[in-house]
Amino acid sequence: MLYLSLKFRELVLPVLVDFWAPGCQPCEMLSPIVDKIATQYGDRLKLIKINVEKSFSIPMHYNLDCFPTLLMFNTGQVVEKIVGTIPEAVLMKVIRKHLTA
């Protein structure tokens, strides 16, 4: 049996990146939903939050100009892009389809 260290496992987990801006009402509405999902799937999903006012080169790299925007990465590739606020159930459905068993 192959033992995978937690560090290695974290490297291969799907990653959800939340691009948000301070004072952005839709961002503030989506944030607790994203946090809840990250907590619920914390062993199978890595969450990164990026304040676009402090790290503007990253959203520019992905041609993002509306916030909030969520990018789901799997094996280093963007597999989903969600722009704006969506219901928790819809977001969970999108995320679950990318989680490995």
Results as ranks from 00 to 15, higher is better:
Leu16Asp: 01
Tyr41Lys: 04
Gly42Trp: 08
Thr39Ser: 12
Ile37Met: 14
Thr100Lys: 10
Val17Arg: 03
Thr69Met: 14
Thr85Asp: 09
Glu80Phe: 14
Pro68Ser: 14
Ala38His: 07
Val17Leu: 12
Cys24Tyr: 10
Leu13Val: 01
Asn51Asp: 15
Gln77Thr: 00
Phe19His: 08
Val52Asp: 05
Met29Pro: 00
Leu2Phe: 11
Lys97Thr: 03
Asp43Pro: 01
Leu45Tyr: 00
Tyr62Asp: 08
Tyr41Pro: 01
Asn51His: 11
Leu11Met: 03
Val12Ile: 09
Asp18Ser: 10
Trp20Gly: 08
Gly84Val: 14
Leu71Ile: 14
Leu70Thr: 06
Ile86Met: 08
Phe19Cys: 10
Ile95Gln: 05
Lys93Arg: 12
Phe67His: 14
Val94Ala: 04
Arg96Tyr: 02
Tyr62Pro: 10
Thr39Val: 08
Lys54Met: 15
Leu11Glu: 00
Leu16Arg: 06
Ser5His: 03
Val34Gly: 10
Pro26Leu: 11
Asn74Pro: 00
Ile58His: 07
Lys36Ala: 10
Leu45Glu: 01
Tyr62Trp: 12
Glu10Ser: 00
Gly84Asp: 13
Leu47Ala: 05
Met92Phe: 03
Leu16His: 04
Leu91Val: 12
Thr100Tyr: 02
Leu2His: 11
Gln40Pro: 04
Asn74Lys: 13
Phe67Pro: 10
Pro26Val: 14
Lys54Cys: 07
Leu16Asn: 02
Pro87Asn: 04
Phe56Trp: 07
Leu71Asn: 11
Pro32Cys: 00
Arg9Ala: 00
Phe73Lys: 04
Leu47Val: 09
Glu10Trp: 04
Met1Pro: 13
Met60His: 06
Leu45Gln: 05
Leu45Thr: 02
Thr75Arg: 05
Lys36Gly: 06
Pro87Val: 03
Trp20Asp: 03
Asp43Val: 00
Lys97Gly: 01
Leu47Asn: 10
Tyr62Lys: 07
Val90Gln: 07
Pro68Thr: 14
Thr39Gly: 15
Leu11Asn: 02
Thr39Lys: 06
Ile58Pro: 03
Glu80Cys: 10
Asp18Arg: 04
Val17Phe: 08
Met1Gln: 01
Ser31Gly: 12
Phe19Asn: 07
Gln77Cys: 00
Val79Met: 09
Ser31Arg: 10
Phe19Gly: 08
Val12Trp: 00
Leu64Val: 13
Ser5Arg: 00
Pro68Asn: 15
Cys66Asp: 11
Ile37Asn: 10
Arg44Leu: 02
Ala101Ile: 01
Asp35His: 06
Val79Gly: 12
Gln40Arg: 13
Phe19Ile: 14
Pro22His: 11
